[in-house]
C-alpha cells in the first residue's frame, strides 16, 4: 500500500464516501421523486386555486379568493363532498363485515382449497378497476345478464331497474374494494395461534367471548389498514360513480374532472382539489392520533 494512495483516496472514493452524495442517491432520489412530482404540483395547484380562470384552461395569475367563495356560496359543492364522504362510510361499513368474514374464513379454514381461494383474491386485486366496474354494467343493466336470466326463468316480467343508481354504484365499489379488506384481515388472523383460542375456551369463554377477547384485538391492524384503504379509495372514487351511478349519484372526483375537462376551469378545479385534499388530510390526521399510519399503509400494501 503506497503512501500516496493512503493520503489521496481516489476521487471516486471521495465522492462515493461523501455522506451527502450517499444521501442524495439513497434515499434522496425517492424523496425527490415524490417532492418533485407530487408535493411541488400540489403547491402549484394551491397557488393556482387563488388565481383567475382564463379561457381554455388558461390561468390568469392575479390573486383572488373567488374560487373559494364560489365553493362557500354555491352549497352544492359542499353537499357533494359530504355525500362523497358518506358513500365512503357506507362502502366501508359494508366492506368491513363482509371482508372481515372472508378474511377470517381464509385465516382459519384448513381446506385444501384455501390457497386457491387466497390466490383468487390476489388475482381479483390485480384486475384493473375499470374492468371490475365494467363487469357490473353487463351484469346489472336492463338487458344485462341478471335481468335476462331472471326473465328467461320467469321470476320477473319487467327488468329490475337496479343499474345506474346508488345501489349499483355502492355494490360495484364495495365488491371492487373487498380485497383491500380481505387480505390484511387474512394476514393478521392467520398469525393468531389457534391454541390461544382453545386456551380461552378451556378457560370457559364462549365462542363469542373468545372471538372478542382474542381474535378481534389481534386482527385490529388488518381492520385498520382495510378501513383506511377502502375509505380513501371509495370516497375519492371516479369510475364507479361515473359508470355505475345514477342521476342522483354525486361524488367529488367526477365533479373535479368535469370542472377541469369540460369547464376548463383550472383554478376552480384546483380549489376543489385543495379543499377535498384538506379534508382527507384532516381525517388522516385524526386517524394518526389513534393508529400508526405507516404501519397501516404497510399492512395494506405488502
Amino acid at each position: 500500500m503506497s503512501t500516496e494512495r493512503a493520503r489521496l483516496p481516489a476521487m471516486k472514493d471521495r465522492v462515493m464516501e461523501n455522506d451527502w452524495v450517499q444521501f442524495l442517491i439513497s434515499p434522496g432520489i425517492g424523496i425527490a421523486w415524490v417532492l418533485g412530482l407530487l408535493f411541488l404540483p400540489m403547491t402549484i395547484i394551491l397557488v393556482i386555486s387563488f388565481a383567475i380562470p382564463g379561457d381554455f384552461g388558461n390561468v390568469i395569475y392575479e390573486f383572488t379568493t373567488a374560487n373559494y367563495e364560489r365553493f362557500v356560496n354555491a352549497g352544492v359543492y359542499q353537499s357533494i363532498i359530504l355525500e362523497s364522504l358518506m358513500y365512503g362510510v357506507v362502502v366501508t361499513l359494508i366492506a368491513l363485515p363482509a371482508g372481515y368474514t372472508v378474511g377470517y374464513f381464509l385465516g382459519r379454514s384448513k381446506t385444501d382449497w384455501k390457497w386457491v381461494l387466497l390466490g383468487l383474491v390476489v388475482l381479483q386485486y390485480w384486475v384493473p378497476f375499470i374492468i371490475r366496474t365494467y363487469a357490473w354494467i353487463i351484469v346489472l343493466s336492463n338487458n344485462g345478464v341478471l335481468n335476462t336470466l331472471l326473465m328467461d326463468v320467469g321470476v320477473i316480467a319487467q327488468p329490475l331497474d337496479v343499474m345506474y343508481s346508488n345501489v349499483s354504484m355502492i355494490l360495484g365499489l364495495t365488491v371492487s374494494l373487498l380485497p383491500f379488506m380481505i387480505l390484511p384481515v387474512y394476514v393478521s388472523v392467520s398469525t393468531i395461534e389457534e391454541d390461544q383460542i382453545h386456551a380461552a375456551k378451556t378457560l370457559g369463554a364462549t365462542d363469542f367471548r373468545a372471538f372478542r377477547e382474542i381474535t378481534l384485538p389481534q386482527s385490529l391492524p388488518g381492520i385498520v389498514s382495510g378501513i383506511l384503504f377502502v375509505f380513501i379509495i371509495s370516497a375519492g372514487a371516479f369510475l364507479a360513480p361515473t359508470l355505475l351511478g345514477g342521476p342522483t349519484t354525486r361524488m367529488i372526483a367526477p365533479i373535479i374532472e368535469g370542472v377541469f375537462i369540460n369547464d376548463f376551469n383550472w383554478p376552480f378545479a384546483a380549489a376543489l382539489s385543495m379543499i377535498y385534499f384538506a379534508i382527507i388530510a384532516f381525517l388522516l390526521y385524526l386517524f394518526t392520533r389513534r393508529v400508526d399510519l405507516e404501519e397501516a399503509l404497510e399492512t395494506g400494501a405488502t
Partner: peptide
C-alpha cells in the same frame, strides 16, 4: 497507521 501510513480515513475496500 499501517506500515507508517495513516489509514484512519481510508474506506475498508482500499485497505488490505
Amino acid at each position: 497507521r499501517l506500515e507508517g501510513n495513516d489509514i484512519t480515513d481510508l474506506p475498508p475496500y482500499r485497505r488490505n
